[in-house]
């Protein structure tokens, strides 16, 4: 399959990219790793008039620790995230989830920013950034803004990102006690259901929990009833089981496809919430 014709431009800087994007009048798209976009273009499901390649913008890629927070640049590849010693040490859920994406070749090109901007309902990283309470850093013609990840994902393939805005990266306070668990769709390796759970545990007691699900509905979102049930409880199997038992009960617009009915998906949200919480608690 072959995409339709388009113009190709390479951006030199973030501002250059923003200017070029604005000049396309909404018809252009950013290209980083291209591993969400190019397959759609080949099937002619996406036909942008021009592509602005941001993959070589200096400083847009990389993983840094700063003021107790971790920043991951938008064009950092899944492979770089997966292999990051810094993340493995400070926040192992992120490389764990990155390693669940696609396959090695895809992880070598696919980027964190691309995955978040594309917001496939079955993508892995959206759940992770929501669970970590990450901020998405965005730059547009009007300058910088930051959006909480949970507000960034709005609907099916729909995010809080203007047509001339760019994700520059994400920032979050790292924590070790977080886990990701996923039911693979056996053909695509996307998530039928994926759950990321982050626990703030002190003295064996969960101070607070953030749990987010992907694959189950239109977009990655928190599971507030699970979080509420965990807060203040001992970080043990009993609390986890009780919390996981209500996972997904409040989810709306549950996805239905060839691979999973609504009933099965809802049940799997519970199963993988439990597994993600168990992983988090074990860290």
């Amino acid at each position: 399959m072959i995409p339709v014709e388009f113009d190709y431009e390479r951006a030199e800087s973030l501002d250059d990219a923003i200017a070029r994007l604005a000049a396309t009048g909404g018809e252009g798209k950013l290209l980083a790793g291209g591993h969400s976009l190019v397959p759609l273009m080949k099937l002619r499901l996406s036909e942008p008039s021009s592509l602005i390649d941001i993959s070589r913008i200096a400083g847009l890629s990389g993983i840094r620790e700063k003021d107790g927070k971790v920043e991951i640049g938008a064009t950092t590849t899944h492979h770089e995230v997966q292999q990051s010693e810094l993340l493995r040490r400070l926040c192992p859920v992120v490389p764990e989830a990155a390693g669940e994406i696609g396959d090695p070749q895809i992880r070598h090109k696919g980027t964190l920013g691309g995955s978040l901007a594309h917001a496939d309902p079955s993508a892995d990283m959206p759940a992770v950034v929501v669970a970590l309470g990450a901020e998405v850093h965005i730059k547009g013609p009007g300058g910088w803004r930051a959006v909480a990840a949970e507000d960034f994902f709005q609907d099916l393939f729909t995010v809080d990102l203007g047509p001339d805005e760019i994700i520059a990266g994400v920032q979050f306070r790292p924590l070790r006690s977080a886990g990701y668990a996923k039911l693979h769709q056996r053909a695509s390796h996307y998530a039928i259901v994926g759950v990321a759970a982050a626990l703030d545990v002190e003295g064996g007691v969960v101070r607070s929990a953030r749990v987010a699900v992907t694959g189950a509905s239109t977009h990655a979102q928190r599971l507030p009833n699970v979080e509420e049930l965990l807060a203040g409880r001992p970080a043990n199997a009993e609390s986890i089981a009780a919390a996981a038992a209500v996972a997904g009960d409040t989810l709306e617009d549950v996805n239905v496809d060839l691979h999973a009915s609504e009933e099965y998906r809802r049940a799997m949200v519970k199963v993988f919430t439990r597994r993600a919480l168990e992983r988090a608690a074990a860290r």
Binding site: Y8, L31, G34, H35, V38, P39, K42, L51, D53, S55, H79, P104, Q105, I106, H108, K109
Partner: peptide, 12 residues
Amino acid sequence: QSVKSCTLFAVQ
């Protein structure tokens, strides 16, 4: 690094 050359444009 291994990549899928059907999912990359030559210009990239």
